[in-house]
Computed example of a mutant assay.
Amino acid sequence: MEIVLAACGCIVLYTYFGYALIVWILIRIRGQRPVLKTDTAFMPDVTLIIPAYNERAFLPLKVANSLGQTYSPDRIQFLFVTEGSTDGSAEFLLSEYGSRVKILGGTERLGKVAAMNRAMQQVTTPLAIFTDANTILNTQAVEKIVSHFRDPEVGAVAGEKRILTNASESAAGSGEGLYWKYESLLKQLDSELYTIVGAAGELFAIRTELYEPVETDTILDDFVISLRIAGQGYRVAYEPEAFAMERPSFSIVDEQKRKIRIAAGGFQSMVRLKYLLNPFRYGWLTFEYVSHRVMRWALVPFCLPLILLANAYLAIEAFSSPSPWAHGWSALFILQCLFYTAAWVGYGLEKKRLKWAAVFIPFYFTFMNACILAGLARYLKGAQSGTWEKVRRADEMGI
Protein backbone atom coordinates (compact mmCIF):
# COMPACT_ATOMS: atom_id res chain seq x y z
CA MET A 1 0.00 0.00 0.00
CA GLU A 2 2.88 2.33 0.71
CA ILE A 3 4.23 1.65 -2.78
CA VAL A 4 0.80 2.26 -4.34
CA LEU A 5 0.36 5.52 -2.44
CA ALA A 6 3.89 6.72 -3.23
CA ALA A 7 3.68 5.81 -6.92
CA CYS A 8 0.27 7.39 -7.42
CA GLY A 9 1.29 10.46 -5.43
CA CYS A 10 4.38 10.92 -7.60
CA ILE A 11 2.27 10.70 -10.76
CA VAL A 12 -0.12 13.39 -9.52
CA LEU A 13 2.65 15.69 -8.28
CA TYR A 14 4.67 15.26 -11.48
CA THR A 15 1.67 15.93 -13.71
CA TYR A 16 0.59 19.15 -12.01
CA PHE A 17 3.86 20.51 -10.61
CA GLY A 18 6.95 18.46 -11.46
CA TYR A 19 6.56 18.58 -15.23
CA ALA A 20 6.36 22.37 -15.29
CA LEU A 21 9.42 22.62 -13.04
CA ILE A 22 11.44 20.22 -15.19
CA VAL A 23 10.55 22.09 -18.39
CA TRP A 24 11.45 25.40 -16.75
CA ILE A 25 14.86 23.99 -15.74
CA LEU A 26 15.48 22.56 -19.23
CA ILE A 27 14.71 25.94 -20.79
CA ARG A 28 17.10 27.69 -18.41
CA ILE A 29 19.86 25.19 -19.21
CA ARG A 30 19.37 25.43 -22.96
CA GLY A 31 18.66 29.16 -23.08
CA GLN A 32 15.77 31.12 -24.55
CA ARG A 33 14.57 30.31 -28.06
CA PRO A 34 15.92 32.87 -30.58
CA VAL A 35 13.49 35.68 -31.36
CA LEU A 36 12.96 36.40 -35.05
CA LYS A 37 13.52 39.95 -36.18
CA THR A 38 10.42 41.98 -36.84
CA ASP A 39 9.46 41.99 -40.50
CA THR A 40 6.79 44.59 -41.24
CA ALA A 41 6.65 43.41 -44.85
CA PHE A 42 5.46 39.96 -43.75
CA MET A 43 1.70 40.16 -44.15
CA PRO A 44 0.36 37.09 -45.97
CA ASP A 45 -3.29 36.69 -46.88
CA VAL A 46 -5.34 35.01 -44.15
CA THR A 47 -8.86 33.68 -43.78
CA LEU A 48 -10.63 34.03 -40.45
CA ILE A 49 -13.00 31.06 -40.11
CA ILE A 50 -15.87 31.41 -37.64
CA PRO A 51 -18.10 28.36 -37.06
CA ALA A 52 -21.44 29.87 -36.04
CA TYR A 53 -24.14 27.33 -35.38
CA ASN A 54 -27.23 29.19 -34.05
CA GLU A 55 -25.11 32.11 -32.80
CA ARG A 56 -27.38 34.89 -34.06
CA ALA A 57 -27.30 36.67 -30.68
CA PHE A 58 -23.49 36.93 -30.76
CA LEU A 59 -23.00 37.70 -34.44
CA PRO A 60 -23.27 41.54 -34.38
CA LEU A 61 -20.54 41.74 -31.75
CA LYS A 62 -18.44 39.03 -33.40
CA VAL A 63 -18.59 40.57 -36.86
CA ALA A 64 -17.70 44.02 -35.51
CA ASN A 65 -14.82 42.52 -33.56
CA SER A 66 -13.56 40.62 -36.62
CA LEU A 67 -13.75 43.64 -38.92
CA GLY A 68 -11.99 45.70 -36.26
CA GLN A 69 -8.76 43.69 -36.40
CA THR A 70 -5.64 45.79 -37.01
CA TYR A 71 -4.45 43.42 -39.74
CA SER A 72 -4.46 44.97 -43.22
CA PRO A 73 -8.10 44.84 -44.46
CA ASP A 74 -7.08 43.83 -47.96
CA ARG A 75 -5.16 40.84 -46.59
CA ILE A 76 -7.88 39.25 -44.49
CA GLN A 77 -11.04 37.39 -45.49
CA PHE A 78 -13.91 36.38 -43.21
CA LEU A 79 -15.72 33.07 -43.60
CA PHE A 80 -18.73 32.41 -41.36
CA VAL A 81 -19.88 28.78 -41.29
CA THR A 82 -23.57 28.71 -40.37
CA GLU A 83 -24.22 25.11 -41.41
CA GLY A 84 -27.48 23.77 -39.98
CA SER A 85 -28.44 27.01 -38.19
CA THR A 86 -32.15 27.62 -37.69
CA ASP A 87 -32.03 31.01 -35.97
CA GLY A 88 -31.54 33.21 -39.04
CA SER A 89 -27.77 33.55 -38.70
CA ALA A 90 -27.07 33.20 -42.42
CA GLU A 91 -29.87 35.60 -43.37
CA PHE A 92 -28.61 38.20 -40.89
CA LEU A 93 -25.03 38.02 -42.17
CA LEU A 94 -26.15 38.19 -45.78
CA SER A 95 -28.39 41.21 -45.25
CA GLU A 96 -26.06 43.18 -42.99
CA TYR A 97 -22.55 42.21 -44.12
CA GLY A 98 -22.98 40.31 -47.39
CA SER A 99 -20.39 42.38 -49.23
CA ARG A 100 -17.75 42.07 -46.51
CA VAL A 101 -17.95 38.46 -45.35
CA LYS A 102 -18.33 35.05 -46.95
CA ILE A 103 -21.02 32.69 -45.73
CA LEU A 104 -20.94 28.92 -45.90
CA GLY A 105 -24.43 27.76 -45.05
CA GLY A 106 -26.58 24.71 -45.58
CA THR A 107 -29.76 23.40 -44.06
CA GLU A 108 -28.41 20.02 -42.95
CA ARG A 109 -26.59 19.85 -39.64
CA LEU A 110 -23.63 17.55 -40.21
CA GLY A 111 -21.54 18.71 -37.26
CA LYS A 112 -18.77 21.20 -36.63
CA VAL A 113 -15.95 19.06 -38.02
CA ALA A 114 -17.78 18.34 -41.27
CA ALA A 115 -18.42 22.08 -41.57
CA MET A 116 -14.74 22.86 -40.93
CA ASN A 117 -13.69 20.33 -43.56
CA ARG A 118 -16.03 22.04 -46.03
CA ALA A 119 -14.77 25.47 -45.02
CA MET A 120 -11.13 24.54 -45.60
CA GLN A 121 -12.01 23.55 -49.16
CA GLN A 122 -13.03 27.18 -49.71
CA VAL A 123 -9.83 28.68 -48.28
CA THR A 124 -7.40 30.02 -50.88
CA THR A 125 -5.10 31.94 -48.52
CA PRO A 126 -1.85 30.43 -47.17
CA LEU A 127 -3.03 30.84 -43.57
CA ALA A 128 -6.33 29.97 -41.89
CA ILE A 129 -7.36 31.17 -38.43
CA PHE A 130 -10.14 29.51 -36.47
CA THR A 131 -12.13 31.32 -33.80
CA ASP A 132 -15.45 30.67 -32.08
CA ALA A 133 -18.47 32.89 -32.69
CA ASN A 134 -19.10 33.50 -28.97
CA THR A 135 -15.60 34.76 -28.19
CA ILE A 136 -14.10 38.22 -28.56
CA LEU A 137 -10.53 38.72 -29.79
CA ASN A 138 -8.19 41.54 -28.90
CA THR A 139 -7.78 43.84 -31.89
CA GLN A 140 -4.17 42.75 -32.57
CA ALA A 141 -4.89 39.02 -32.35
CA VAL A 142 -4.55 38.25 -36.06
CA GLU A 143 -1.45 40.41 -36.41
CA LYS A 144 0.25 38.77 -33.42
CA ILE A 145 -0.57 35.23 -34.50
CA VAL A 146 0.51 35.69 -38.12
CA SER A 147 3.92 37.03 -37.09
CA HIS A 148 4.98 33.54 -35.91
CA PHE A 149 4.64 32.11 -39.40
CA ARG A 150 7.78 33.97 -40.44
CA ASP A 151 9.49 30.92 -38.94
CA PRO A 152 9.22 28.09 -41.53
CA GLU A 153 9.34 25.53 -38.70
CA VAL A 154 6.03 26.81 -37.31
CA GLY A 155 3.02 24.99 -38.72
CA ALA A 156 0.37 26.30 -36.36
CA VAL A 157 -0.06 28.97 -33.70
CA ALA A 158 -2.37 28.94 -30.69
CA GLY A 159 -3.72 32.04 -29.04
CA GLU A 160 -4.58 32.36 -25.37
CA LYS A 161 -7.99 31.61 -23.92
CA ARG A 162 -9.17 33.95 -21.18
CA ILE A 163 -12.22 33.44 -19.01
CA LEU A 164 -13.94 36.66 -17.98
CA THR A 165 -15.17 36.39 -14.41
CA ASN A 166 -16.30 38.97 -11.91
CA ALA A 167 -16.21 39.22 -8.14
CA SER A 168 -19.61 37.58 -7.72
CA GLU A 169 -18.91 34.69 -10.12
CA SER A 170 -19.73 31.12 -9.12
CA ALA A 171 -17.05 28.66 -8.07
CA ALA A 172 -17.16 26.92 -11.44
CA GLY A 173 -16.49 30.19 -13.23
CA SER A 174 -13.66 31.12 -10.90
CA GLY A 175 -12.18 27.64 -11.12
CA GLU A 176 -12.40 27.64 -14.89
CA GLY A 177 -10.61 30.98 -15.05
CA LEU A 178 -7.86 29.83 -12.70
CA TYR A 179 -7.47 26.58 -14.65
CA TRP A 180 -6.94 28.45 -17.92
CA LYS A 181 -4.35 30.73 -16.31
CA TYR A 182 -2.48 27.59 -15.24
CA GLU A 183 -2.90 26.12 -18.73
CA SER A 184 -1.54 29.31 -20.30
CA LEU A 185 1.58 29.07 -18.14
CA LEU A 186 2.15 25.47 -19.22
CA LYS A 187 1.63 26.39 -22.87
CA GLN A 188 4.24 29.13 -22.60
CA LEU A 189 6.70 26.61 -21.17
CA ASP A 190 5.83 23.94 -23.75
CA SER A 191 6.21 26.40 -26.62
CA GLU A 192 9.55 27.64 -25.33
CA LEU A 193 10.90 24.10 -24.96
CA TYR A 194 9.59 22.79 -28.30
CA THR A 195 5.87 22.91 -29.14
CA ILE A 196 2.54 23.22 -27.39
CA VAL A 197 0.46 20.04 -27.32
CA GLY A 198 -3.05 21.02 -28.30
CA ALA A 199 -4.54 24.34 -29.34
CA ALA A 200 -7.76 25.76 -27.94
CA GLY A 201 -10.50 26.11 -30.55
CA GLU A 202 -11.33 29.63 -29.41
CA LEU A 203 -8.31 30.90 -31.37
CA PHE A 204 -5.68 29.05 -33.40
CA ALA A 205 -4.11 29.32 -36.84
CA ILE A 206 -2.57 26.85 -39.27
CA ARG A 207 -0.77 26.77 -42.59
CA THR A 208 -3.57 25.89 -45.00
CA GLU A 209 -1.42 23.37 -46.88
CA LEU A 210 -0.93 21.34 -43.70
CA TYR A 211 -4.60 20.80 -42.99
CA GLU A 212 -5.72 17.19 -43.11
CA PRO A 213 -9.49 16.50 -43.22
CA VAL A 214 -10.59 15.36 -39.78
CA GLU A 215 -12.89 12.44 -39.03
CA THR A 216 -16.38 13.92 -38.76
CA ASP A 217 -17.10 12.31 -35.39
CA THR A 218 -14.06 14.00 -33.82
CA ILE A 219 -14.91 15.81 -30.60
CA LEU A 220 -11.71 17.79 -29.96
CA ASP A 221 -11.02 18.96 -33.50
CA ASP A 222 -8.68 21.76 -32.40
CA PHE A 223 -6.58 19.33 -30.36
CA VAL A 224 -6.35 16.73 -33.13
CA ILE A 225 -5.65 19.24 -35.91
CA SER A 226 -2.83 20.95 -34.05
CA LEU A 227 -1.19 17.73 -32.84
CA ARG A 228 -1.31 16.14 -36.28
CA ILE A 229 0.53 19.18 -37.59
CA ALA A 230 3.08 18.76 -34.79
CA GLY A 231 3.33 15.09 -35.79
CA GLN A 232 4.36 16.22 -39.27
CA GLY A 233 7.46 17.76 -37.74
CA TYR A 234 6.28 21.36 -37.34
CA ARG A 235 6.14 23.38 -34.14
CA VAL A 236 2.87 24.68 -32.76
CA ALA A 237 3.78 28.07 -31.32
CA TYR A 238 1.98 29.99 -28.59
CA GLU A 239 1.08 33.68 -28.66
CA PRO A 240 -0.28 34.99 -25.33
CA GLU A 241 -0.76 38.49 -26.76
CA ALA A 242 -3.41 37.10 -29.12
CA PHE A 243 -6.29 36.14 -26.89
CA ALA A 244 -9.91 35.08 -27.09
CA MET A 245 -12.20 36.18 -24.29
CA GLU A 246 -15.38 34.42 -23.25
CA ARG A 247 -17.65 34.14 -20.23
CA PRO A 248 -17.63 31.02 -18.04
CA SER A 249 -20.35 28.39 -18.16
CA PHE A 250 -23.74 29.57 -16.93
CA SER A 251 -24.04 26.90 -14.22
CA ILE A 252 -22.32 23.85 -12.80
CA VAL A 253 -24.64 21.68 -14.91
CA ASP A 254 -23.49 23.41 -18.10
CA GLU A 255 -19.85 23.20 -17.04
CA GLN A 256 -20.22 19.51 -16.19
CA LYS A 257 -21.74 18.82 -19.60
CA ARG A 258 -18.84 20.63 -21.28
CA LYS A 259 -16.16 18.92 -19.19
CA ILE A 260 -17.53 15.42 -19.77
CA ARG A 261 -17.70 16.05 -23.50
CA ILE A 262 -14.10 17.30 -23.52
CA ALA A 263 -12.95 14.29 -21.49
CA ALA A 264 -14.69 11.88 -23.87
CA GLY A 265 -12.93 13.71 -26.69
CA GLY A 266 -9.65 13.39 -24.85
CA PHE A 267 -9.85 9.60 -24.75
CA GLN A 268 -10.97 9.53 -28.38
CA SER A 269 -7.99 11.71 -29.32
CA MET A 270 -5.50 9.59 -27.39
CA VAL A 271 -6.59 6.53 -29.36
CA ARG A 272 -6.31 8.36 -32.69
CA LEU A 273 -2.99 9.95 -31.79
CA LYS A 274 -1.41 6.86 -30.24
CA TYR A 275 1.40 7.01 -32.80
CA LEU A 276 2.72 10.09 -30.98
CA LEU A 277 3.66 7.86 -28.02
CA ASN A 278 6.84 6.78 -29.86
CA PRO A 279 9.70 8.81 -28.32
CA PHE A 280 12.24 7.40 -30.77
CA ARG A 281 10.40 9.06 -33.64
CA TYR A 282 8.84 12.13 -32.04
CA GLY A 283 11.30 12.95 -29.24
CA TRP A 284 10.34 16.12 -27.37
CA LEU A 285 6.82 16.00 -28.74
CA THR A 286 6.22 12.62 -27.09
CA PHE A 287 7.69 13.87 -23.80
CA GLU A 288 5.43 16.91 -23.77
CA TYR A 289 2.34 15.08 -25.01
CA VAL A 290 2.59 12.31 -22.42
CA SER A 291 3.48 14.61 -19.53
CA HIS A 292 1.00 17.39 -20.25
CA ARG A 293 -1.96 15.50 -21.70
CA VAL A 294 -1.88 11.71 -21.47
CA MET A 295 -0.98 11.54 -17.79
CA ARG A 296 -3.58 14.17 -16.86
CA TRP A 297 -6.36 12.35 -18.69
CA ALA A 298 -5.39 8.69 -18.44
CA LEU A 299 -3.58 8.39 -15.09
CA VAL A 300 -4.31 11.13 -12.57
CA PRO A 301 -8.11 10.58 -12.29
CA PHE A 302 -7.46 6.93 -11.39
CA CYS A 303 -4.58 7.72 -9.05
CA LEU A 304 -6.61 10.04 -6.83
CA PRO A 305 -9.05 7.40 -5.46
CA LEU A 306 -6.18 4.91 -5.15
CA ILE A 307 -4.25 7.42 -3.04
CA LEU A 308 -7.25 7.92 -0.76
CA LEU A 309 -7.92 4.17 -0.36
CA ALA A 310 -4.27 3.28 0.19
CA ASN A 311 -3.92 6.10 2.69
CA ALA A 312 -7.07 4.97 4.53
CA TYR A 313 -5.64 1.45 4.82
CA LEU A 314 -2.31 2.75 6.13
CA ALA A 315 -4.05 5.07 8.59
CA ILE A 316 -6.05 2.17 10.01
CA GLU A 317 -2.92 0.02 10.25
CA ALA A 318 -1.16 2.87 12.04
CA PHE A 319 -3.18 2.28 15.21
CA SER A 320 -1.40 -1.02 15.77
CA SER A 321 1.93 -0.20 14.19
CA PRO A 322 5.05 1.04 15.98
CA SER A 323 6.35 2.42 12.68
CA PRO A 324 7.56 6.04 12.83
CA TRP A 325 5.50 6.60 9.68
CA ALA A 326 2.26 5.75 11.48
CA HIS A 327 1.36 9.27 12.59
CA GLY A 328 2.39 10.62 9.18
CA TRP A 329 -0.08 8.37 7.35
CA SER A 330 -2.84 9.42 9.74
CA ALA A 331 -2.07 13.11 9.29
CA LEU A 332 -2.01 12.73 5.50
CA PHE A 333 -5.35 10.93 5.56
CA ILE A 334 -6.88 13.70 7.64
CA LEU A 335 -5.59 16.29 5.17
CA GLN A 336 -7.10 14.35 2.28
CA CYS A 337 -10.42 14.14 4.10
CA LEU A 338 -10.36 17.89 4.68
CA PHE A 339 -9.56 18.51 1.02
CA TYR A 340 -12.45 16.41 -0.28
CA THR A 341 -14.76 17.80 2.38
CA ALA A 342 -13.91 21.28 1.11
CA ALA A 343 -14.64 20.05 -2.42
CA TRP A 344 -18.03 18.71 -1.31
CA VAL A 345 -18.86 22.00 0.42
CA GLY A 346 -17.85 23.83 -2.75
CA TYR A 347 -20.14 21.60 -4.78
CA GLY A 348 -23.05 22.33 -2.45
CA LEU A 349 -22.42 26.06 -2.62
CA GLU A 350 -22.09 25.92 -6.39
CA LYS A 351 -25.50 24.33 -6.75
CA LYS A 352 -26.85 27.33 -4.83
CA ARG A 353 -24.75 29.65 -7.04
CA LEU A 354 -22.72 30.85 -4.09
CA LYS A 355 -18.98 31.39 -3.94
CA TRP A 356 -16.44 30.80 -1.19
CA ALA A 357 -12.87 31.29 -2.38
CA ALA A 358 -11.45 28.91 0.24
CA VAL A 359 -13.16 25.88 -1.31
CA PHE A 360 -13.41 26.55 -5.03
CA ILE A 361 -9.92 25.19 -5.85
CA PRO A 362 -10.53 21.82 -4.10
CA PHE A 363 -14.00 21.76 -5.66
CA TYR A 364 -12.87 22.49 -9.22
CA PHE A 365 -9.92 20.09 -9.08
CA THR A 366 -12.12 17.25 -7.81
CA PHE A 367 -14.93 18.17 -10.17
CA MET A 368 -12.58 18.21 -13.16
CA ASN A 369 -11.18 14.75 -12.43
CA ALA A 370 -14.62 13.30 -11.75
CA CYS A 371 -15.73 14.61 -15.13
CA ILE A 372 -12.78 12.85 -16.77
CA LEU A 373 -13.95 9.53 -15.34
CA ALA A 374 -17.50 10.26 -16.54
CA GLY A 375 -16.06 11.19 -19.94
CA LEU A 376 -14.27 7.82 -20.13
CA ALA A 377 -17.55 6.05 -19.43
CA ARG A 378 -19.24 8.04 -22.18
CA TYR A 379 -16.45 7.31 -24.64
CA LEU A 380 -16.53 3.56 -23.90
CA LYS A 381 -20.31 3.55 -24.42
CA GLY A 382 -19.88 5.31 -27.75
CA ALA A 383 -22.46 7.84 -26.60
CA GLN A 384 -20.73 10.89 -28.04
CA SER A 385 -21.27 12.46 -31.47
CA GLY A 386 -19.35 15.07 -33.42
CA THR A 387 -22.29 17.48 -33.74
CA TRP A 388 -22.11 20.75 -31.87
CA GLU A 389 -23.41 20.74 -28.31
CA LYS A 390 -23.99 24.31 -27.26
CA VAL A 391 -23.40 25.10 -23.61
CA ARG A 392 -24.93 28.14 -21.99
CA ARG A 393 -22.49 30.86 -20.93
CA ALA A 394 -22.88 33.48 -18.21
CA ASP A 395 -25.35 36.12 -19.37
CA GLU A 396 -23.22 39.13 -20.27
CA MET A 397 -19.94 39.28 -22.16
CA GLY A 398 -18.72 41.84 -19.63
CA ILE A 399 -16.34 43.51 -22.04
Rank of each mutant, 00 (worst) to 15 (best):
I136M: 06
A237F: 13
I307C: 08
G283K: 14
I307Y: 01
R235G: 14
S321F: 08
S385D: 13
V271L: 05
R261Q: 10
A383S: 14
Y289S: 10
E212P: 00
T216H: 04
V214T: 06
Y14I: 14
L178N: 07
C371N: 10
I136V: 13
K144V: 10
Y179N: 11
K181G: 06
S66W: 03
F319A: 08
M295N: 06
W297L: 11
M120C: 11
A318T: 03
R393F: 01
A326C: 06
T38E: 07
G375H: 00
W325F: 13
L276V: 08
L332K: 07
R30K: 14
V4M: 13
I50H: 02
A156Q: 10
W180M: 08
W329K: 03
W356L: 15
Y289H: 14
A52R: 00
E239V: 03
Y211S: 05
I136Y: 03
E153W: 11
Y194V: 00
D221A: 05
A128E: 05
F302W: 11
L137A: 10
E83Q: 10
G328D: 04
L308G: 07
K351D: 07
D151Q: 07
N311T: 14
T47W: 10
T107F: 11
A298E: 03
A41M: 07
L299V: 08
Q121Y: 09
S95V: 05
K352M: 15
H327R: 06
V146T: 15
V23H: 05
L94M: 04
Y97Q: 05
D190G: 04
L203G: 02
L178C: 09
D190Y: 06
V146S: 07
